[in-house]
Write a protein that binds this DNA or RNA. Sequence first.
DNA 1: ACCGAAAATGTAAGCGCTTGCATTTTGTAT
DNA 2: ATACAAAATGCAAGCGCTTACATTTTCGGT
Lengths: 345, 345
Amino acid sequence: MDTKSYNRELPTLQDVAREARVSTATVSRTLNFPNQVTEATRLRVMETVRALNYTPNFSARALAARRTNTYGAVIPTMENAIFARGLEAFQKVLVANGATMLVASSSYDPQIEEDQIRNMIARGADGIVLIGNDRKPEIYRFLEERQVPVIIAWTGSSLAGRSCVGFDNVAAARQLALKAISLGHRRIAFISAHTVSNDRARDRVAGARAALRDAGLDADAMPLVETKYSIQCGQDAFATIMAADPKPTLVMCGNDVLAVGAIKAAQEMGLDVPGDVSITGFDDIELATIVSPALTTVHVPHRQMGRLAAEMLLAEVRDKSEPRQINLETHVVERQSLAAPRDQG
Amino acid sequence: MDTKSYNRELPTLQDVAREARVSTATVSRTLNFPNQVTEATRLRVMETVRALNYTPNFSARALAARRTNTYGAVIPTMENAIFARGLEAFQKVLVANGATMLVASSSYDPQIEEDQIRNMIARGADGIVLIGNDRKPEIYRFLEERQVPVIIAWTGSSLAGRSCVGFDNVAAARQLALKAISLGHRRIAFISAHTVSNDRARDRVAGARAALRDAGLDADAMPLVETKYSIQCGQDAFATIMAADPKPTLVMCGNDVLAVGAIKAAQEMGLDVPGDVSITGFDDIELATIVSPALTTVHVPHRQMGRLAAEMLLAEVRDKSEPRQINLETHVVERQSLAAPRDQG
DNA sequence: ACCGAAAATGTAAGCGCTTGCATTTTGTAT
DNA sequence: ATACAAAATGCAAGCGCTTACATTTTCGGT
């Protein structure tokens, strides 16, 4: 008894060709370049395709054509609305262009990121989008060797003429800090994501420092706590910061999630936000409008970055277009968590 | 002048074989079944691999081996913490097993979902996870023909002996509703996601109805508004519901996002939650703990589903294990948005 | 009707890998 | 030493598609 008797093979291009009484080349052309084929042939072939319920084998196609029509994205985490949103937009564009997305998350771990990148390349990604600039030079070397187009997202500047689509993290944070300073804040503390191998986080801190410097304050004295990405971590960091003396009148946070944690912690400590202490975020995710008080934060064009990244990647691969550097606008969204400090002293 | 002079070809298995003075078969075995090869050979081959900086070509491998080691997930949307979380867990397991994840989102559109499923199969996904049972029978037929293992997630029951990993949406919603009824609620309204081709949403409504019936109330009279998935939609739906007379004392929502919208709307209408009206959610995402009042909701084991889905898929593909149906526990998380109604009349 | 260019189609050589089978090497028991 | 099974390796035939090049068909102009 043949145990796998029902494992009938799938129809191949050959089968279609035989059935439609044309060569495999013609079938291939009908599928890939319909306009290179007579209307009659096209109809006949398509009919056969339908009749046999044929689906092309992408591996074979990729092997023969030497491109996979697949694009990768390696992001720090999917559990974060901002990246998820960007991804969703990224994939929409790809699908609209008949391409497929490969995703991997690195959990903010450079080693995992490297593995994932190599894996995507091995799987034949035609192009790849990465978040931020910070990574070992050998990774970039590897990518160049393989001649795989790369887009750096989430930052408006990149090195070595690489493509990027993002915004100026320094400027955005600086603008927010300046606004706070103009409201009278002088003692500003910062809760940041870990800045090692995270240029976005570093830039945001730098932006705050720059604003302090602009105002003639001691930027280096700014209390800074680095922590992981979660509400709980934001809470803990806030507690650490408020243990200092004198306490800051404003705690800036490197992202909204940390800020929400900070607000929670403040409220648990019986502090009024923004009465006793102001808190700001960065990203403008949904959470920012839900938390009470609603978060004053920096709006970041997540979807737009995802969309543009896909378009740029497709252009570079399909039209051999030149790398571009796109710097998008951000703006401060004023809500309720930032106000003038109560004690101006 | 050769314009692509710098397009040096990547090393292939052949190159490694020649360099290491073995056959391609041996290199292949060294890479895939190291224990079928002498220690000495293995070392020599691996050394050569490193020296040439060789990476296997997955398309070729997939074509020859007739499996891609790739697993797909088609989810309604990535912009939703619950699916994102599940995905993250799904991918972690895959990566730990040397496999890759393909993701696609359908935007809750059955047609897009179908296209995405077919696309994944064409791309050679070795297995696939789908959310919920509702879809055209021909899709299931297609999948069976192709003999691709499928896992239905987000629901604890499936038809035709298909594998699933999830929970009982009816029972979970019923339990929550019963709790509310025991608090004294009699006039209960429901805001649901669209129930067409969404069995999870339908089941949750059914659960609420079942509870009403248990309590001897008229389940069919329960006001029901169906809407899309967003905070704004939740707000609008809440307004619609509260325009009725008599107003409900409890508005149950099919998910946390809608519930947050409902709370927002209530507050904008000057209604106290839960004083004037109770509101419940479903999912227990982060948002639920942030919104004020914090949401009483049903906790759903998102990560666990993702993890188990991956494990089951791998087992079915690699070990030919039998389909399984896994029904996970859920539980009501009591926070502040549900309380006894003020007017018991 | 005939010619030549352009359009359509066919031929067949791979793409880089896996794997069944054949062959060689190794290890063990005599 | 010798015989033999088991382990390691090699040989070579594909996997299903694309595409350069060769061949045939079509069609406008005469």
